[in-house]
């Protein structure tokens, strides 16, 4: 637990370093609703929020605990303190932490999951500055926009998933949430498609980010090779790996095309990143996508 805590702190620090010069972000949903406005999205009417809006006379039938006793004590009437309605949006993230993501093709770069976590946390920080509520898909974590939530998210992100390939858990989505999915999307296509369509069906806006290791893009192998998944569940042996290169690249392009078609069907966005380049580049592209600058 201590170890996890330290790792989470580290992750936060790295995310802080990546994000300190970037502007705050608003969720894609709110961008769609209210145009490009940054900051507290006051609705100019009473409602639930943090900012004071007005005092009004209590009307009969109003719950006693609604009454602001301090104001009421100065006069004879009873007053109710109303706050301005604020509409913070909920952004739910999912970073695939399956065995497939915990892979790095080279000792001098981190795993895909690590890069994914970093990206996710950076996005969280930027959104937090936009006072959006943040949560994690499939985790028992109530969406919130407090600083403490960031730390909780960081810790939750580190929890490993034992499966070979991850599929986003899209049960019980809140209405009108934004969803960011970060994964390699190497799992069974049908499961992925089902999950994304169901998420889109709840009216959520979303971005799918495919994060790949360079060797998964280039396939720089030759000779007799036995390929194994990191989880060990799948193996594939070939006499001459180099002969397989074009076939594999074709398959990868096909998977990316499927992903792009699916997301555009759902009015989602889709991005492809690799884990070798600087995280800042990926973050810029991603934040621009979130901000709606395609």
């Amino acid at each position: 637990m201590n170890q996890d805590h330290r790792e989470a702190r580290e992750l936060l620090a790295r995310a802080e370093a990546e994000t300190w010069r970037l502007p705050p972000l608003l969720s894609p949903t709110r961008m769609a609703q209210s145009g490009r406005r940054i900051g507290a999205h006051g609705k100019r009417r009473a409602g639930t929020g943090y900012q004071f809006w007005q005092f009004r006379n209590a009307v009969p039938g109003e719950a006693v605990r609604q009454i602001d006793w301090r104001k009421s004590a100065r006069s004879d009437a009873c007053f109710v303190r109303e706050k301005e309605q604020q509409s913070a949006n909920t952004v739910l993230l999912w970073v695939d932490n399956s065995a497939s993501m915990r892979f790095s093709g080279s000792a001098d770069r981190g795993t895909k999951a690590d890069r994914g976590r970093l990206l996710a946390l950076c996005i969280c920080m930027l959104l937090m500055r936009g006072e959006e509520r943040l949560g994690l898909l499939g985790r028992p974590l109530k969406p919130d926009s407090s600083q403490a939530q960031l730390e909780r998210i960081a810790e939750e992100l580190l929890a490993a998933d034992d499966t070979e390939y991850g599929v986003p858990p899209v049960n019980a989505l809140p209405k009108g949430a934004s969803i960011i999915l970060i994964s390699d999307f190497f799992g069974p296509w049908s499961a992925l498609e089902t999950a994304i369509r169901r998420a889109a069906g709840t009216g959520a806006m979303g971005i799918a980010v495919q994060l790949l290791d360079p060797i998964e893009i280039d396939f720089p192998f030759s000779g007799r090779t036995r390929f194994e998944t990191p989880g060990g569940s799948l193996t594939f042996e070939t006499m001459e790996a180099a002969a397989l290169r074009e076939t594999y690249r074709g398959k990868l392009r096909q998977r990316q095309r499927q992903l792009a078609e699916l997301t555009s069907d759902c009015s989602w966005q889709c991005q492809f990143h690799d884990s070798a380049g600087p995280a800042t580049d990926s973050l810029l592209f991603l934040s621009r996508a979130i901000a709606g600058e395609h």
Binding site: S100, I215, E216, R224, T229, F236, M239, Y248, K251, L252
Partner: peptide, 27 residues
């Protein structure tokens, strides 16, 4: 006795398995 195969960790084996159609080369 063929030369031993090299073991390579590679997540997208799933993609390779879909492409399993090449000639079966004698080892």
């Amino acid at each position: 006795l063929p030369p031993p195969a090299r073991r390579q960790l590679f997540p997208p084996v799933s993609l390779l398995l879909e492409a399993r159609d090449q000639q079966a080369q004698a080892a």
